[in-house]
Design a protein around this nucleic acid. Structure first.
Lengths: 220, 220
DNA sequence: ATAAAATTTTAGACTACCCTAAAAAACTAT
DNA sequence: ATAGTTTTTTAGGGTAGTCTAAAATTTTAT
């Protein structure tokens, strides 16, 4: 039984620790939670007490197995609700994150598993992020960044690594959404910007900053 | 911006004040919230401060117009989520109340209005309770109690006034759910128990206690 | 290697919501 | 109408989660 605040810390530690499950610093947590480092330290003590994190003073934190399990449950709930809002309620992909931040704390497993079935067991959310399974494992897809795609290669957009709504709205307008086909037409060496052909249409220009935050996989 | 706890108090005051909008006592609130009277007094002061209730010491409380508006929003959210869970996720009507108690505090109007549309603007929840409109008015239906139905009259079950899951499960088993047709076949004067014919089938026996908590309207 | 800078933790305090015990006000019964 | 009972409020205090200020530890730079 973790409180809403505890769940948010676990989720955040999961995200900040990255694929390599590196230690997360107190200051990084303070920045993301919009609180002060002293408050974070208090919470870390509590989470360590509950065996949800490995914590030694001044050493940063990692999730325990139990902590990771709980973080993945929160992330699973978040992403399933996002799918629900986009697929069933007609929200745009750039609108759903803040509401999912609230819905993710409704704890009923029965609710979430029925929702999962209602949505036909989606494997990823509207931004292409994988949805953890009910048993608590995260399906890790090996997408790569659009900016690393070679000239003339054709790829499919699978997701994004930046979720700011302004970025998502830009992508919608450009047609760069999960499922779109992209061919790299030109790469400018000096600023790494690209000309790309989206779904076979006229080439468009995107900056390296944009290309870096688009996840793609090779055409099948 | 009312907190989760404040929302629960407003909803409770609404329910306890009844159709006549009578004053609600501190002790009634303490009993229902599973807290002590002293704690209730603290909260009443805060709600009065925010102009959500009319409160004079020792006099009980009533909702202000603004307080009632907020209570109705919470009740609207609760009942829409109940419809969602039963209609879309396949929950039984006796399972949804505790989960709706959590979902009702997700505040987004956009979410609720889209959910309302997705559900085809239902007018009542799975227990027959009316769903307040987006503008904050409660459609009051003039149902009467099954126990007040005259011998041989035929009526339609519209809802219930008791929501305990054991009661709801009993009704499901008996086929006494909203929409069922009931004809009163016999009334026992000494204990006011009844023989009733449900959907034209063989007569069943129900106690006054059961009949008192079933809401019906005359056959059209 | 050690002084300066940065990070993290401790100490003490605040708010929201809850508590117990005691005081105040309102009912009730004769 | 007044004494006893019940209800409600006040007073003082506790926990979760936050804060500021100061102390402890680690990192960085020379």
């Amino acid at each position: 039984m973790a409180s809403l605040t505890e769940e948010n810390y676990l989720k955040l530690i999961y995200h900040l620790s990255g694929a390599l499950r590196e230690e997360v610093s107190t200051s990084a947590l303070a920045e993301q939670t919009q609180t002060k480092a002293a408050s974070v330290t208090d919470m870390l003590k509590k989470l360590a007490e509950k065996n949800l994190i490995h914590y030694k003073r001044y050493q940063g934190v990692r999730l325990t197995e139990e902590g990771e399990y709980m973080a993945l449950k929160v992330i699973r709930r978040h992403r399933l609700w996002e799918v629900f809002m986009v697929e069933k309620l007609g929200f745009r992909w750039d609108e759903v994150h803040p509401i999912a931040e609230e819905l993710e704390h409704i704890a009923s497993d029965e609710l979430i598993n029925r929702l999962d079935a209602f949505l036909n067991f989606p494997v990823s959310d509207p931004h292409g992020d994988p949805i953890p399974t009910a048993s608590g494992s995260m399906p890790e897809a090996d997408y790569h960044k659009l900016c690393d795609t070679s000239l003339n290669d054709q790829v499919t957009v699978m997701g994004v690594s930046e979720h700011a709504s302004s970025f998502l709205q830009f992508l919608s307008k450009a047609g760069l959404v999960p499922g779109s086909t992209v061919q790299v037409v030109e790469i400018n060496a000096f600023d790494r910007s690209m000309q790309i052909r989206i779904n076979g249409l006229e080439p468009s220009f995107i900056s390296h900053e944009v290309a870096r935050n688009i996840l793609v996989s090779p055409e099948s």
